[in-house]
Nucleic acid binder design. Structure first.
Lengths: 341, 341
DNA sequence: ACGATTTAGTAAATCGGTTTACAAAACCTC
DNA sequence: GAGGTTTTGTAAACCGATTTACTAAATCGT
């Protein structure tokens, strides 16, 4: 690899016998040139294989044509799909994407955010999965040009985009109620998180609507992880809870849960009914196929990007909005009438 | 959002009463300063909340501290996990990652690569999933500082990193042979791809080793997609193939296959045995749990990064190496002795 | 044919750092 | 205390683009 001095605008200008300014303007469409000049420049560019240096460009324009995407963990298919959608949408606008994986650690969220604050990117799509003590919100508000997606950062006054968690919970509750379930176990993420609050609330509303006071909901609070799914399953078995149906508030929780149930010989839906949430994995091939609420993940990603790019950020007042994307229930075979124990 | 003039090195220097050079050098550890000066500079930085402008930095150093990651599709859990591993490894070295999703389109691979060629990133981890007519290889060789991962680009003379596909195929064949299968259907990706060639070869070797000439392998050539899995399943049914076991060369193919088999009432493993490849999805929860070859995806990602960063690229001769990572078979319940039809 | 406007083009400043070349001060050595 | 070396520091060039301010030439209306 020799010391490849990259060809610069100056080289092109010299080759074409014009000034750098002329070439630059021409390239940026700010100058109409007579055909002869135009041809000359174009052929010089081709001959020299000129590619503009993006860093110089960004430095002088004070704009990066890059957006940042902060996400807990891309290995998780839900976030992976979200990233894919954002990336695709960004690319179609000529934007590059820089990825910041926080690996579920709050300090990394803060670190990234403050590094980004000044100059790294033109805007930020922010996906957290942790409760915030206010630090994060403060930083987000200071940074500007941030869109919060999927999970709330309560004190942040920026555009927010979630799926309709409350209705998701409601759909679960109604489906369960239709099968006659009155006692349901809700297994969800950290208490402070808006997604879990709303899913629970929706569940509650639906169940009470159908069964009134006879509806009894137990609730395990933990994390949206496989490990917590396992833990909850073990606890459910140990405590011998009277619940006849379980609402697992994420694919991961459902996976952990099913693992343990299988190992313990608990049959779904004969012994207990289960409904999941997210539906990005191949739940339809599970044994039995798992009924679940489907999140519109790709739409979430696309919309996040357009929210980021099409918002008028010039206005002085902070822009706090909240947009909800509809969810749907995908009925499969993991719900049956309550087992008579 | 007011016109936030970001504080620059100059501001810090003025505040601290020294020159910009001094601050710059100090920050880069190229200058030991007396405590008083040091304190002064540090407190100025803190007071002004100085953050270096990365673009200026990159421009003047001619180095980006960023690597590029070209990948077909992050929504695919296999690639998602790979990206996650690379990202994590990169981050621990202080490197940022810019993501380029090619969305399975060869022209985008070329476009990205030539954009990158000059100045965008310090190095590139390249994952393709298409056959190459030579254009890609030429571009890769010209670019330099590229590592090819997971799938080969035959004419590229750069370090390459794959999993041990041949042994993967062999493990499948041996497992199948142990159950008495002699007639096997191999469903794999595009013929030109090294991964599918080697998996097939391994399968063949194992089967012939155990059953000699009685081993009969049919082969469907397509793509590593769910859609092709479905197609292959339909074809298998239509053609009424005598195969008693199927080797599906990716998670996706297996998923499509199982979908159709379920719909057609074909039972795994009673009617036909199935083995998958990749094992990144929750195959263990399928009905029945799917036996599969497990790729060391995370290791693949980590190793890719160290290959990229620890290779001595200075040498004139192109560096062509090939490293294989071991795979293992995860035995579950999708293989049984051949059904007597 | 004259001044007014538009077009085609240039030189130089700027973005915010790093780095080279050099100067002054401090510290040794004999 | 003269000469050499190290420490501490500065001014200025440079990376490769964009952009401002300005000029020369061409075009226009009347």
């Amino acid at each position: 690899m020799a010391e490849r001095r990259t060809t610069s605008l100056k080289d092109v200008a010299k080759e074409a016998g014009v000034s750098v300014t002329t070439v630059s303007r021409f390239l940026n469409g700010k100058l109409d040139l007579p055909d002869t000049t135009k041809k000359r420049i174009e052929s010089s560019i081709a001959r020299l294989k000129y590619e503009p240096n993006p860093h110089a460009r960004r430095l002088s324009r004070g704009q990066t044509d890059t957006i940042g995407l902060v996400v807990p963990d891309i290995a998780n298919p839900f976030f992976g799909t979200l990233v894919a959608a954002v990336e695709e949408a960004a690319d179609s606008r000529g934007l590059a994407v820089t990825l910041y994986a926080t690996l579920n650690r709050a300090d990394r969220e803060l670190a990234y955010l403050s590094r980004i604050e000044r100059n790294h990117v033109d805007g930020l799509v922010f996906v957290t999965n942790h409760p915030d003590n206010g630090d994060l919100a403060a930083l987000i508000n200071r940074t500007g040009k941030v869109v919060v997606v999927d999970e709330d950062v309560p004190l942040a006054t920026v555009p927010k985009l979630f799926c309709d968690n409350e209705n998701g919970g409601f759909l679960v509750g109604r489906h369960l109620a239709e099968f006659g379930h009155q006692r349901v176990l809700y297994i969800g993420g950290p208490e402070e998180m808006i997604s879990t609050q709303r899913r629970y609330k929706g569940l509650e509303r639906a169940l009470q609507q159908d069964h009134g006071d006879r509806a009894v909901i137990d609730r395990y609070v933990g994390a949206y992880t496989i490990e917590f799914g396992r833990e909850a399953a073990r606890r459910f078995v140990d405590e011998n809870l009277p619940a006849t149906a379980i609402f697992a508030a994420s694919d991961e929780i459902a996976i952990g849960l099913i693992e343990v149930f299988r190992a313990s010989g608990i049959s779904i839906p004969d012994d207990v009914s289960v409904i999941g949430f997210d539906d990005v994995g191949p739940l339809h091939l599970f044994g039995p196929p798992l009924t679940a609420i489907r999140q519109p993940v790709r739409t979430l990603g696309q919309r996040a990007l357009s929210l980021l790019m099409d918002t008028d950020w010039q206005r002085d007042a902070p822009i706090a909005s909240e947009e909800l994307l509809p969810v749907e229930i995908v009925v499969r075979d993991s719900v049956a009438p309550p087992a008579k124990k």
